[in-house]
């Protein structure tokens, strides 16, 4: 049966079938969707959910490959006169991603800016003494291979504690770099995944909020800058849900 993106049967064959490395071109970056766990109203995220999600990936034949880790830092301005507080960005994020160990990414979501630079830029930021780290978060967990898909499930924790702040999941489709061309197959995969996960009756579900990449000057061809923008979007969602929970409590 020829491969097509059109039917659920085809996608099932694709991700449950053999991994085909020949489809993965070294110069093309596979695209990914970054999903986050959205707890049901009145519930919070906990490590039991993380364990069940990981089991569920293995339950659909995901082969555990190893660990992955990304770090994210929120920067805040150092102001000489705190009373004189001009409009400084509050959503200034710096990120290191495992897929590009020699690069560092900055995002300013409110201004729709993503910048790719060398890791040495962190050194420059330190020397400038104009911004400092407000909070650092770590995303870490396991990576799984599932046919043409690579999944990463990870917890979100502050750098110096084990206090679980969220759960993220990366769904990477290795053969394609075009966001538009892969949209249908990604949607179908997510449907199958949500269906598998729903059998566990967990108090929440994964959501995917796709940023408008063109606002950041990014094209349909996927790059690590797209990943940085997705993480900045995930962080904004996590903060919004945490604020919503505390508002309900108060």
């Amino acid at each position: 049966m020829p491969f097509s993106y059109g039917s659920r049967q085809s996608i099932s064959r694709s991700f449950l079938g053999e991994f085909r490395p020949s489809l993965f071109l070294a110069e093309a970056m596979p695209l990914k969707w970054v999903l986050q766990w959205q707890p049901n109203p009145g519930t919070t995220v906990n490590s039991q959910i993380l364990a069940e999600v990981s089991q569920c990936v293995e339950g659909i034949n995901g082969v555990k490959e190893g660990r992955w880790k990304a770090t994210l830092t929120y920067y805040k301005p150092i102001l000489r006169d705190q009373a004189m507080s001009p409009e400084m960005p509050r959503d200034f994020i710096g990120m290191s991603l495992p897929e590009q160990p020699n690069k560092y990414y900055f995002t300013l979501r409110s201004h729709r800016i993503v910048v790719e630079s060398d890791v040495s830029v962190q050194n420059i930021m330190e020397k400038l003494q104009s911004y400092k780290s407000r909070v650092a978060l770590i995303f870490e967990g396991f990576q799984y291979q599932l046919g043409d898909f690579q999944l990463r499930v990870g917890k979100v924790v502050p750098s110096h504690s084990e206090n679980l702040r969220g759960i993220v999941m990366e769904v990477e489709y290795l053969p394609i770099s075009s966001l538009e061309k892969s949209r249908q197959i990604m949607e179908e995969f997510i449907d199958i995944w949500q269906e598998a996960l729903s059998k566990r009756s967990l108090p929440g579900h994964f959501i995917h909020v796709e940023p408008n990449f063109s606002e950041y000057g990014l094209s349909d061809h996927y790059t690590s800058q797209h990943t940085a923008v997705q993480y900045a979007t995930v962080m904004a969602q996590l903060i919004a849900s945490a604020q919503a929970v505390s508002t309900v409590r108060n």
């Binding site: 400084m88 960005p89 911004y131």
Partner: peptide
Amino acid sequence: RPMVESKASKNVLRFFYVLGY
């Protein structure tokens, strides 16, 4: 003298303007 360099994407100028430079 100390000197640090980093390659950057083309929007780096706008980025530093937003940061307050």
